[in-house]
Nucleic acid binder design. Structure first.
Lengths: 127, 127
DNA sequence: CTCGATGCAAAGGTTTTGCACCAGG
DNA sequence: CCTGGTGCAAAACCTTTGCATCGAG
């Protein structure tokens, strides 16, 4: 309802598929708002949005956490260890696999995105 | 070659399937060695072992990183968000899935373990 | 006016780094 | 002896929290 929050929401809304760190968010919010916003405010806003189910907050690899909007289509991620490119896996590529896991292990995958590290097509050796 | 390193290796060797944080490692090393070892040494040792491909160092969720030995049999992980239980997925449950990813996206999964967050059988609602 | 969001600052936890010292080979 | 591992301490990094203030409704 206040300006900083609106700015955070706006930034998130205009970056559907991107995965932003808190720092990225701060940077963009500053651009949108014309003034800097305290990290604490960023984190608090993320926290609220996450609690209300509007964004996801995950950790890829060792770096800082990343955030992005929850859209209608659930998806997970392929993260290239080499170039850093993140590709979305559409849910239909996952469903048979996840169904198998539930069958065999009784394990229900959460809505939380997961990241599979590896090498993307452009980086994996052609051999 | 020095005592602290040997101790770290020994602890790791006797905890095949476990996933230890650096703090856990430190604790166990202290037990084995009879004296405390500086965290810096733990991290430096992990770093060396990781670089040489003997251990994996991953982050599950938001907490501290965990470490474990690389054994012959690659496997990935199902982490229960509720009880914290970590279950290994044998590779054969993954292969068809990973092969599909490579087919469709040219993506080669790395040896790095991945963790799928969700609910294990005991925690997921029976409904 | 009242409640909650903000900024600032400080703390928390994990991991890294600098540096002098010590020990292994 | 000489290289490199070690401990200690401090810093870096991301994130959280306390507190007083400011702004929205």
């Amino acid at each position: 309802m206040t300006a900083p929050r609106r700015a955070v929401c706006q930034v998130l809304a205009t970056s559907h598929t991107e995965h932003l760190t808190a720092a990225d968010l701060g940077e963009r919010v500053e651009k949108v708002l014309g003034r800097s916003v305290d990290p604490a405010t960023i984190y608090r806003t993320i926290d609220v949005l996450e609690r209300e189910g509007h964004v996801h907050h995950v950790h890829f690899g060792h770096g800082p956490g990343v955030v992005h909007m929850v859209d209608d289509r659930a998806h997970h991620h392929l993260v290239c260890e080499q170039c850093g490119h993140t590709e979305d896996i559409p849910m239909d590529a996952l469903e048979p696999f996840l169904a198998g896991l539930e069958d065999r292990f009784g394990f229900k995958a959460g809505s939380t995105h997961f990241a599979l590290m590896g090498k993307c097509g452009s980086c994996s050796p052609p051999a």
